[in-house]
Simulated scan of single mutants.
Amino acid sequence: MKSPPRKRTVPRKSKKKSSFMGKLRPVLTGFLVLFIIFAVGYHYRNGLAYYLGYKSDKVLKKNAEKQRLSDVRNYQILTKFEFNPVGIDVSEYQGTIVWDSVRVIENRFPIRFVFVRATVGMDRPDKKFAENWHALHTKSFVRGAYHYYRPNENSTQQAELFIKNVVLKKGDLPPVLDIEQLPTKQSLKQLKVGLKNWLQLVEAHYGIKPVVYSGANFYTQFLKEDFQGYTFWIANYNFFVENMQSDWRFWQFTEKASILGIEGSVDVNIFNGTEAELQSLTLGR
């Protein structure tokens, strides 16, 4: 008769060692958090220095203007691309804009171009388009008009609405198609057919290839492969993205900038090229 096997004794953890590690863990976590804060602070040191100095030195004197500061990342990126043309885009959501006051971003970076929303879907112009478009005609900015595309609506009617409301002149930027959402009443394949139809109709009317605007993920997943040959304007607000991809002709890097003359937040864009290259995109060049 075999004797039952002995149970293996599991060594117990030392209470002293466990207690020591328990005390050490929050200390290490604290050091890690401090290191991350220091690293981020060092990376954005120029923006932080500007922000703190500008806030204490100037903003308190400009309360009547109700001008907000952009976040530190905005200043950091604008500084990095200070030799690239910088622009904004606006719509009815910015209300009535005092264009005589719109000149620079963060009191340093001159605005070179402005995109204005012209139409939405197949049924209405932007409420402030006519006013903004006319005002920009007398300013030194290079101007451009864009259409907000509704993926469930007829593409031909959307193109006709844009053409009816937008008169482009020599020196204006190409028309822009803004597509950000997937359809709920048709397939992705049908959406792409509609987008190409809009682009072809608008190009035939104005004699220039339109620009396509979209978010970075939407562009990568649904547009990049099937719309090669078009100029792309890409929105990417990721805090840790600080460089443009080579196929981003325009980069909308923030939607939270503050500009004198405009109430509320404003989108800011950087052109991936020189001033001369920006001019070469315009009509009549």
Rank of each mutant, 00 (worst) to 15 (best):
I179G: 02
K224P: 00
I179R: 05
N165M: 09
R150Q: 09
I105R: 04
F83D: 15
V268Y: 01
Y51S: 14
K196D: 13
A118N: 05
A49K: 12
I77C: 05
Q228C: 00
I105N: 02
Y44I: 07
N217A: 00
D172E: 12
F83M: 12
S246Y: 00
P5D: 07
W248Y: 08
K192M: 09
S246P: 02
F35D: 04
F38C: 11
L32P: 06
L24W: 12
D126L: 11
D89V: 09
T282G: 04
G215H: 03
K127D: 14
H137V: 03
I262F: 03
N197C: 04
Y219P: 00
G171W: 11
V266M: 02
N269V: 04
V102I: 10
V102K: 06
K23W: 14
Q252K: 00
E82C: 10
Y54C: 07
Y206H: 06
N132Q: 12
L52I: 15
Y149L: 13
G207F: 02
R117K: 15
G30W: 07
L177K: 05
M1L: 10
E242G: 08
K185M: 05
V27F: 14
R117F: 10
P26L: 04
A276S: 13
P175C: 03
R8T: 11
R249N: 07
V268M: 02
E263K: 12
F141Q: 12
R68T: 11
L278Q: 05
Y51R: 15
E275Y: 08
K58F: 12
N217Y: 01
Y206W: 03
L188S: 10
E263Y: 02
Y42R: 10
S101A: 10
R12C: 01
W99P: 12
V241W: 00
S246K: 10
E275M: 09
V268E: 01
D57R: 13
E255P: 06
P151L: 06
F38V: 12
T231H: 00
A276G: 05
S187C: 05
G261M: 01
K170G: 06
D57H: 11
Q186F: 01
A235D: 01
A135R: 11
N46S: 13
I77Q: 07
Q94V: 13
V176L: 10
N132I: 11
S246F: 00
Y54P: 01
F83C: 06
S280W: 04
L173N: 05
S56L: 15
Y230F: 12
V241R: 05
L199I: 03
F271L: 08
N272D: 05
E225G: 01
W251Y: 02
K169G: 13
N165F: 09
S91C: 08
L32D: 02
I97F: 05
S56D: 14
L173Q: 08
L278P: 05
E277N: 06
W198L: 09
Q228G: 01
K189L: 10
R103G: 14
T254C: 03
Q221H: 06
